[in-house]
Nucleic acid binder design. Sequence first.
DNA 1: TGCGCCCAATATGTATGCACTTTATCGGGC
DNA 2: GCCCGATAAAGTGCATACATATTGGGCGCA
Lengths: 250, 250
Amino acid sequence: MAKSSAKKKREPAEDKVGTICRALRRAIIEQALEPGAKLPEDALGERFGVSRTIARQALGQLAAEGLVELRRNRIAVVATPSWQEARITFDVRMELERLVVRQLAGQLNKAQLAELKAHVDKEDAARNGPDAISIRLATEFHILLAQMTNSPILTRYVSEVSYRCCLTLSAFSRPHSADCGITEHRAIIDALAKGRTDEVMSMMHHHLDAVATRALVAPAKQRSQDLVDILAPYADEAEAAPVKPRRSAA
Amino acid sequence: MAKSSAKKKREPAEDKVGTICRALRRAIIEQALEPGAKLPEDALGERFGVSRTIARQALGQLAAEGLVELRRNRIAVVATPSWQEARITFDVRMELERLVVRQLAGQLNKAQLAELKAHVDKEDAARNGPDAISIRLATEFHILLAQMTNSPILTRYVSEVSYRCCLTLSAFSRPHSADCGITEHRAIIDALAKGRTDEVMSMMHHHLDAVATRALVAPAKQRSQDLVDILAPYADEAEAAPVKPRRSAA
DNA sequence: TGCGCCCAATATGTATGCACTTTATCGGGC
DNA sequence: GCCCGATAAAGTGCATACATATTGGGCGCA
């Protein structure tokens, strides 16, 4: 809302790379693109009406965010987070979001609080819709919080790690096990409004811990992954040698 | 073109983009490139013997890491962190590194401990050398720790935020005020070896807090920046006047 | 003298072409 | 029938070319 007010005759900044990135990000977190899905530069370029150059830049950016994997001379694919990485990813996210609410506690004005509540209402409305939408909205709630800190780097890190958690959810969690608790979101808003710093930090901690636990209770859904992914955790045991897991000829 | 025999030579993968990134990163954290320094694609390409395409990709990656600023249709420049961003950057770093040592406490083998000690010895040897080298080595110590967690994302985030802290140091700290305490590094290694998790987390916290405090005691050195940088915070109010909550500039 | 406009030099934004690598297809030997 | 090597197709790696935007300087006019 506030961001469109300062626009004058600002042309469509022509940010083609950003457009493609946003589209792909959304497709990925809504699970339209599952982990491992191929992303050929040609196809992307054709779909978005740009050349491979632009598609390639977009893929590069998403790779920097950890959402896609870029292998030399190979088709880029949607990243496939490993199970043990999932744990630490959620840990990182917990700490970052604790920082966010620490910054925000007691600092939000009425407009911001209203925006947050409106967003949770949207989550509520989408509760019975497809899982993917719920997950996206829940993630966007956390990103919205981060943006309100007015700190670019905190926003960037929280966004990235949240998207990555989304990806993890889409890789490991069973249907309906991954929804962010809407009630907890409301409680966090309330605690933020009242400026109870320690309390809201603790709430955020437990909230994300609950999400992680619900999602990672068991390494389910592994069946759909490639064989090498299933074997990855076992291969790690013997990682003392710098040997790289090579995919056996199928 | 059949490989006549079973000879499979692994080429050095020719990672040109990565090479340029590493070179620029190092130049930036050693303050050979100060914040605000221009980075024209042509010049980079010529210097590294590649085309603009590659130089551009490298700049894109560094921009994703927050080390360079990319403005549309304008020459890329080394990022100029703002003073209030510096505070939150160090906060993020503190939390991330607490996670690192939490993972590592009591888990390191002798070879790893020896590697850490050897690195601190290098820091010690460089103590009387140029500041830039000391800062780089101190930063690399923290990155080395992160790498030992064997977690790519933790490594990536710690690296990025550490580099960014370096950049902040180079922008704000006065000579000799920024050196990481070597004694504290040794103490951290010792506590890690003894597996005292809570203690080492606390030590890391205070260690980084001390670095931040030494570095950010006062917004000095602003004078050396370009005028536009000094005026940036004030310009922000002009262009986004409407409803944006204003942060008080020190 | 000083202000403002126009134009060339410079630099970025993007598409396209070519070389090389990987992958898929197909035919022959065991 | 199955495995293996050759060959074609597909895709990426990279450089170059051209279009467009910004910057700096010179010239004219008040």
